[in-house]
């Protein structure tokens, strides 16, 4: 726990931050995505180029249907681009096999969704422990420190239905960071929350940025202001 905070603190230190910012952690190169709808092909992303530095906190904004979720899924390796490539730490993940990707993704990215997507039958603790279960990690100490980090150590034996929306989203954030990934992807993390709770979640994400690269999709320009940079997507193109 303290280790974790320390790393967070040291990396929030401006000196380290600038050093980290030198490196491009994520490089999206000419990414297109086409979906097949019956006989029609729909191109959702038209050659996206985007670079995100280590420790950066980037907001992505854009109209509904502009391809934000699609881009997030591609960066997060849940989906593959039709063309183009994604480099993470200079490793081209589009060249990796499905099997190789599983472990790489486990250790590299954490996801936070608008709908929290917790498993209802599992307690907060168990939900946070899931990534460790799948990675075969037997040391569960990271679970408690992650829950402490989001301020929910005292609710860890509660099931999602017994938690408020904001609390559920904090559990989801704890689950996303429990493996200490380099990248945190949050797709409209405040979309299902009221304004106050929403800004609380954003400050939490902001406090995680630095050690982690945070990319957040939001429709709320006020919340987007918290980030280091805002990227606009318009009809599948970047309009920064």
């Amino acid at each position: 726990m303290s280790d974790y905070l320390e790393t967070l603190e040291t990396s929030n230190n401006p000196e380290n931050l600038s050093e980290n910012l030198l490196a491009n952690l994520i490089q999206v190169k000419d990414v297109t995505k086409k979906y097949r709808l019956g006989n029609n092909e729909v191109e959702v992303l038209h050659g996206i180029n985007l670079e995100v530095k280590a420790g950066e906190f980037v907001s992505i904004m854009g109209q509904s249907g502009s391809g934000k979720t699609t881009l997030m899924n591609i960066i997060g390796m849940l989906d593959r681009p039709t063309e183009g490539s994604i480099l993470i730490k200079d490793i081209d993940i589009t060249k990796k096999s499905q099997k190789e990707l599983v472990d790489f993704r486990r250790r590299t990215v954490g996801f936070v969704f608008q709908q929290f997507h917790l498993i209802p039958s599992l307690t907060a603790y168990e939900n946070v422990a899931l990534p460790l279960v799948f990675s075969g990690d037997k040391d569960n100490s990271a679970v408690e420190s992650a829950l402490e980090r989001v301020g929910l150590a005292h609710r860890m034996h509660h099931k999602p239905v017994e938690l408020s929306g904001g609390e559920q989203q904090r559990v989801a954030i704890a689950r996303a960071v429990v493996m200490k990934p380099k990248i945190l992807l949050a797709d409209e993390p405040t979309g299902a929350l009221d304004a106050t709770t929403g800004s609380m979640i954003i400050s939490l994400l902001k406090s995680l940025a630095g050690d982690m690269t945070v990319i957040m999709v939001t429709h709320n320009s006020e919340l987007a202001e918290y980030s280091d940079r805002i990227v606009y997507l318009k009809d599948g193109n970047v309009a920064e």
């Binding site: 997060g76 849940l78 499905q98 099997k99 599983v102 472990d103 993704r105 486990r106 996801f111 997507h117 917790l118 498993i119 899931l130 990534p131 799948f134 990675s135 689950r175 493996m179």
Partner: peptide
């Protein structure tokens, strides 16, 4: 299906 999707997203492999 959704739970399976969640598990995949948080790191479950096909084999798991």
């Amino acid at each position: 299906l959704k739970e399976i999707g969640i598990m995949r997203a948080v790191g479950a492999s096909n084999r798991q």
